[in-house]
Amino acid sequence: MSCIDIEIGPSGHVGHVHSLEAARRLRTSHGVVGVLSGTLPAAAQQNCFLYLPLVLPHEEIAWLLRRCDDGDGDGKEKVRLVRRQVTENGSQLQEVSRKQAVEQARRDEKNIRFHMTYDNNSGITHSKELDPQYLRECQCTRCEVYTALKEGDASRVVAAGSRFGAQYTLYPGDPLRVHATMLVLPAVKNNQPWDVRALLSIARLATTVRKTVLLPSTSDTKTRATSDDTSIDRRQSHDTQNHVRFYRLEWTGFG
């Protein structure tokens, strides 16, 4: 079983992925693309093409953790939540240092280019697995919406949307090859008045660039919404259908 390590930052609302292999697997088997945020050494003077680490928002991490718990995906891999810590144990450090010193000497000798990527535990820090419970159980609105979006079809890609004036942009597949089809707005509560003006203007613009505005809404009381419910998209799983529902908004082209 392979492992995808997500390193959680000091505040826990984003995670970093440092392994290229993990990034590739997230992309191909989970439809999670993340955001490359590091400097690409080969082209260090631009921001279009960046390098690891890959940044993942907490709702995406929460979804991944739950998904792998449930044995979804191909079931072969585990997603671990880790935090790196400076190694305290002296002998361990020494072990590492000897190994490294040898490698270093070898590199110096040959005077060749060297790789600075290591295995997870070979540096002066080591990854400690965290209890992912709190994230796995995260019930914040954004987690609910994210999950509901992915439940429909896990190969959908939910990307950050601030550049487009949305919470998320939704791609039917890998953004490398397909356009975003939806702009997902921040969720409203079922009984909360819609911000008509803001909603309609973005819907109008979205329509003209062949996108749809998706408005998620969540119920205040999670049990109440079940009673009258015929209005839920059938493809949504039992898990989320009570909490999140979606309406799509498109400009008609007149008026």
């Binding site: 949307g161 004036g165 949305a166 919470q167 921040p186 803001a198 973005i202 613009l205």
Partner: peptide, 15 residues
């Protein structure tokens, strides 16, 4: 307001 609110209106107007 939530940042998205400003940015979506700004996007419409910028457009």
């Amino acid at each position: 307001q939530d940042y998205t609110w400003y940015s979506s209106i700004a996007r419409v107007i910028g457009g």
